[in-house]
Simulated assay, not measured.
Amino acid sequence: MLALGAVTVLAACTSTAKSAEDAKVRTDLEPLERRFAALGPLSGAHWLGTALGTDSRGSVPGPTDVRMVGTARLRAGAVAAITSAPQRGFRPEEPPRLPQKLAEFVPKGARWVRSDSFDRDMTGGTYSGAFYLDPGTDTVYFDTINPGISASSGP
């Protein structure tokens, strides 16, 4: 009986990080291209979609925030074109919360740059997100919460 009680207590205290640990690395492009249409065609994507705030206690169902985080390649020269706009104010900045499952897919020696202005344009002010770009590999690292479908991507 004590063992059953201990299992119940442990299940109730399960960290929300477990959902990220259990997530499978995805490579499909369509969900990313629909949400991040301004980046243009993508390739070589590796990303996670994880529910935040989920627990195993059987709490009242409600809205669930979804974190989409990962990397993808843009067409050749796209990152240089994006980052060359002086009004954007791109500056060197490393992504802060890289999930371990994605570490092997991040370009070695990447020189990430980020712009608050570009982030605002990408999110349209409707969700939170940060977009780090590496001009040397034409790679984007994105970390977003509840990214909506881009209006330009259709229904």
Rank of each mutant, 00 (worst) to 15 (best):
T139V: 13
P92A: 11
E30S: 07
G109P: 03
L98C: 01
M1D: 10
A72D: 02
V79Y: 06
F142S: 04
R67S: 08
L48Q: 05
D143N: 14
H46P: 11
M1Y: 11
T137N: 10
G148W: 02
T8H: 13
T16K: 10
T54P: 04
R26W: 01
V79A: 03
T16Y: 09
P95N: 08
L74Y: 05
D28W: 01
R75L: 13
G77E: 06
A12W: 01
P96H: 12
T64C: 08
P96I: 02
G129M: 03
V113C: 09
A110C: 10
D134N: 00
P147Y: 01
Q87E: 12
A81H: 07
F118Y: 10
I149M: 09
A17I: 10
L39C: 02
L42F: 15
A11I: 03
G5A: 13
D138I: 07
Y127F: 11
A45H: 02
E93I: 03
D65V: 03
A17G: 14
K108A: 15
S84F: 01
G40W: 08
A130P: 00
L29E: 13
P99E: 02
D121W: 00
G124M: 08
K101G: 10
R73A: 13
R91D: 02
T83C: 06
S152V: 15
P107I: 07
T16Q: 14
F118S: 01
S56M: 10
R114I: 05
P86S: 09
G5M: 15
A81E: 11
F118W: 09
A3I: 08
T123M: 07
D22S: 03
R114N: 14
R111I: 08
D28L: 04
N146W: 00
L133T: 04
R34Y: 05
P41K: 12
R34Q: 14
S150G: 15
T144K: 02
L42T: 13
R75G: 07
G5H: 11
S153D: 00
F90R: 07
T137Y: 09
R120D: 10
F118G: 00
A23K: 06
A17H: 14
T54A: 12
E104R: 15
I149W: 00
S153I: 03
M68D: 12
F36T: 04
R88V: 01
G53Q: 05
T144A: 05
D116S: 13
T50Y: 00
F105G: 05
A130R: 12
S15N: 11
L42N: 11
G44Q: 11
